[in-house]
Design a protein around this nucleic acid. Sequence first.
DNA 1: ACTATTAAATGCAATATTACAATAAAGAGC
DNA 2: GCTCTTTATTGTAATATTGCATTTAATAGT
Lengths: 110, 110
Amino acid sequence: MGITKSEIFTEAQNRIATMAKVLGHPARISILQHLFQSDSCICGDLVDKIGLAQPTISQHLKELKNVGLIKGNVEGTSVCYCIHKENWLAMKALLNTFLDSDISTTSECC
Amino acid sequence: MGITKSEIFTEAQNRIATMAKVLGHPARISILQHLFQSDSCICGDLVDKIGLAQPTISQHLKELKNVGLIKGNVEGTSVCYCIHKENWLAMKALLNTFLDSDISTTSECC
DNA sequence: ACTATTAAATGCAATATTACAATAAAGAGC
DNA sequence: GCTCTTTATTGTAATATTGCATTTAATAGT
């Protein structure tokens, strides 16, 4: 039904999935990489560098902002987006607890 | 259009996004966690432990197999799924190169 | 106030995803 | 061969996502 049954999963599982999901699109990966290199924080610059229409980029920015990975500072008519470092680190920590599941693995079944 | 313009992104960006995307559903997170704990490798056990229908679990397993994160050993009538350790480590490394973008960050724009 | 610039919001079309019922396939045990 | 068990496949419905044209909002500069 295109709808996810989040209620049957743990809070942690849902949070991990939500974060992974927002990273699950190359445009959003690209946006984040640009913001890290801070060669283009302004929305319009991102539109130019990535080859997608302005509304599309705007929408991806919104999703990144919704999960708290970025924040936007209004500067006159343009908006300067940057990484929300604190939340980024929290996201990284969350994903790493999951990604490091292999370390504590005991048995091998096949 | 529901279709991703992968051709305008780099190989790396697409691969990172693909991996993140497959981790972007709590059922798949749950499946992987179960496989790591190997308290249930058998498909049927996963169906019991996670509260989703058998075809739904089967479909999620298929997606995890498609990106290479798990492999399935047929054992009689049942199938034993396990983590594909090599590919798991490669995925981890790939995601970490991206997640560690904050480390090499120089400037602050806002 | 008027105009230009920039970004967000709206509306829409095409495609993708999630979930499951029903069915098919494949092997085990008789 | 027949039946049971287990998993994959197919088909379908509901919802989500992606992308963009158009419009709106908000500010800067004149």
